[in-house]
Design a protein around this nucleic acid. Structure first.
Lengths: 202, 202
DNA sequence: TTAGCTTCCGACCGATCGGTTGCTATATTC
DNA sequence: GAATATAGCAACCGATCGGTCGGAAGCTAA
C-alpha cells in the first residue's frame, strides 16, 4: 500500500522506530522489544520495520545507541560549559538525578542502560558486549572528571577515582530502583545527601 | 509413561522444578523462564511442570519465594547468633558479599531479586508486587539492625537508618553489576571499603 | 480388594515469535 | 523519459509461547 518514501522520509521513519523501540525496551527490556509490537504501535508491517535493521539484534543495538545519545544530550552536554573537575562533576550528578526523575517520555520504564545491563549481564552476544562497552565508556568519563577534581585539590589527595566512580554508579542504580519500583519521592534527596558525603573535600 | 509418584516424590519433583526455575530465571529473567525450557532441562513434559503450579505466574512467584528463602539462609541466618546491632550488621554485609560472589550454583546469573526488580519495576501485576514486597521486607530488616546500632552507640546519634539502608542497597546493586557484567575481582574489596566508610562511629 | 485421587504424559490449541519472499509504487539517477 | 534502486506491504514460514485435555499408572484410603 504505502510505497517508497523519499530518503529523508525513510530516515525519519527509522528514527521513529528507534524512538519507539527505546520506549518499549525501557519497560519490557530489550528482549521484550518485539517486532510485532513495534509494528502495531507504529501502524507499520513487520517487514517494514525489519527492513531498516535486518535483524532484531541490530534493532536492539540501535536502541542502545540511541539511549547513549540521549544520556550524552541530557546528562553530560548541559554540564559541558562548567569548569572541569568538581564543579562539572556536580553538575553532571545533578543532571543525572533529573534524568532519572523526569525522562519518562523517552524512558517510561527508567534508564535503558540499567534495564539492559541487568537483563544481559549473565548472557553472551553482541548486545551484552555493547552494554558493557557503553557502561565502561560512561564510567571512564566519570573517572576522568574525578581525577581532575583530585588534582585540582577539590577532593582529598588520597581519593581513589575508581572507588568513587564505583560508589556513584551504585547510588544511581539505587535511585533508579527507588523511582521505578517504589515511586519513592524522597530518593532524589537521599541521593543528594549521599553525594555530598562522597564528593566533599573530606 | 511415568505415572503417579508418592506424595513425597511429588514434593521432591516440585522442589526440583523450583530450584531449576530459580537458576534459569537468574540468567534469563522471570519472563525468560519458560515452561518448555524447564521441561527440557528436567526431562519432563510441559503439562507435568504446569500441573504443580497452574500458571506461569504462580511458577514465577514460587521462584521468588525460593530466592527469598535462599537469601535468608545464606545471608541472614549465619549472622543470627552475632550480637544485635553493628556486629550482626557487619556479619550480614560480609555474608551478602560472599552471597553475590559465590552463589553461582543457585544463581548462575546473579541475585534473582536484582534481576527481577529491574525486569518488573515498570510493569504491573502480582509478580511486580511480590518483588516490591520482598525488597521492602529485607530493607526493613536492614533498617531495624541499623536502628539497634544507633541506639547502642555504634553509629553516630544523628544517623538516619533509612538513608544508610538506601546507600547499602546501592552498594549491593553495584556489586552485582560489577560481578555479573564486568567480572571485576576488585569489586568485593571496593564494597568493603565503602562499607567501612558507611558503618563507622563517624 | 477396590475405588478414587493424583502425578505426569502425549497430543493438541490459538497466538506470537523472528524472519523471508514477492511484489508494488515511487524517488532517484541517467 | 527510461532504467534502477528501494521503502514498505501482505502473506507466509517453522518454531515456540502459555495453556488445555484425556488418559495411563500407581499411591492411598476405604
Amino acid at each position: 500500500m504505502s510505497p517508497r518514501k523519499s530518503v529523508a522520509e525513510a530516515r525519519r521513519t527509522r528514527e521513529r522506530i528507534v524512538e519507539r523501540g527505546v520506549a518499549i525496551a525501557s519497560v519490557e527490556g530489550l528482549e521484550g522489544l518485539t517486532i510485532g509490537r513495534l509494528a502495531t504501535d507504529l501502524g507499520m508491517s513487520k517487514a517494514g520495520i525489519l527492513g531498516h535493521f535486518g535483524t532484531k539484534e541490530a534493532l536492539q543495538l540501535a536502541a542502545l545507541d540511541e539511549a547513549s545519545a540521549v544520556f550524552q544530550r541530557v546528562v553530560w552536554q548541559p554540564a559541558a560549559h562548567e569548569t572541569p573537575g568538581l564543579p562539572r562533576l556536580r553538575a553532571v550528578c545533578e543532571a543525572w538525578i533529573t534524568y532519572l526523575e523526569r525522562e519518562r517520555e523517552i524512558f517510561p520504564g527508567g534508564c535503558l542502560f540499567t534495564t539492559a545491563s541487568v537483563e544481559f549481564d549473565a548472557r553472551g552476544g553482541r548486545v551484552r558486549d555493547a552494554v558493557a562497552r557503553l557502561y565502561r565508556l560512561w564510567r571512564h568519563r566519570l573517572v576522568g572528571e574525578l581525577r581532575l577534581a583530585v588534582t585540582a585539590g577539590d577532593l582529598p589527595p588520597g581519593t581513589d577515582p575508581e572507588q568513587v566512580a564505583y560508589e556513584l554508579v551504585g547510588l544511581y542504580l539505587a535511585l533508579n530502583q527507588a523511582i521505578q519500583l517504589f515511586a519513592d519521592p524522597l530518593a532524589p534527596d537521599r541521593t543528594r545527601r549521599a553525594l555530598d558525603r562522597l564528593l566533599t573535600r573530606a
